[in-house]
Design a binder for these strands. Structure first.
Lengths: 132, 132
DNA sequence: TCGCTATACTTGAGCCGTCAACAATCTAGC
DNA sequence: GCTAGATTGTTGACGGCTCAAGTATAGCGA
């Protein structure tokens, strides 16, 4: 994990969370997402997202957009520049991961792992009240 | 992950990494380990370990011990107090995890997951020269 | 319509861990 | 022995994230 982050930072100036945010935006409707939803998807707190987006906005990869129907929300909107950056970083990032995992696991094993791990909830808080 | 850390901090004043360090020490010969080895096992950098141990030393859970045969190394030595703390924290921590995983996976699935994941190297740096 | 609670987001303070640079010691090869 | 390079560990500076508290808006029930 740390390895993938270090490589992204070195080669593209992106944190692994920066990357995940750009990726989530690129897959979202209109390439925009409410900050709250973004937070949940990348497992950060709302304040973490605010901090992270500060950087991406400064770099021009993401813009703020307001919501017509709810004045509380601000969308994070992927810019063309951000999308280009994502494509660039993806190339080396996914090949890194593919090499790392593919070198140790067969295709069937990878698929089995994937099926198991995707059963873990996106946000643990939501699930499973653990007798606090 | 964040959830388990938060629970440990709330209930026992320990970081998840604090916990892992205490656990590793408790399983080690003479309950002591070189800082370098500790770093590798809990996936921290040497400086991270220095910082983390500062806290555990201040709390009295770990002591420094020097090495007769090599003046560069300082051992991290688990104290009795640290061992007691570990036992105390273990109780809730492992039951948390058991609940979390057991609630979603069968025994066979857990074992399959374990077998697959333990194939990942302890320190990725060591392995797999990734055409840098 | 007023007030209460829930939701979306930001901000200040602070912790945790990294990186880069450094000091001390060990070890090999000469 | 000595020197060159590797290994162990610490420190300063800083980044990234959390928590707690605060602001603003939404929406609901009396």
């Amino acid at each position: 994990m740390r390895r993938f982050n270090a490589q992204l930072v070195r080669d593209h100036g992106l944190t692994i969370n920066d990357f995940e945010v750009l990726l989530n935006l690129s897959k979202a409707e209109d390439r925009q997402l409410r900050r709250v939803d973004l937070a949940e998807r990348v497992l950060l707190t709302p304040s973490g997202i605010t901090r992270l987006l500060e950087g991406l906005e400064r770099s021009g990869y993401v813009e703020r957009a307001s919501c017509a129907s709810d004045a509380r929300v601000t969308y994070a909107q992927l810019t063309d520049e951000g999308h280009a950056k994502l494509r660039e970083a993806s190339r080396s990032h996914v090949s890194e991961i593919r090499e790392y995992m593919g070198g140790r696991f067969s295709d069937e094993e990878l698929e089995a792992l994937g099926r198991l791990l995707e059963r873990l909830p996106v946000d643990p808080q939501d699930d499973l009240e653990c007798g606090a």
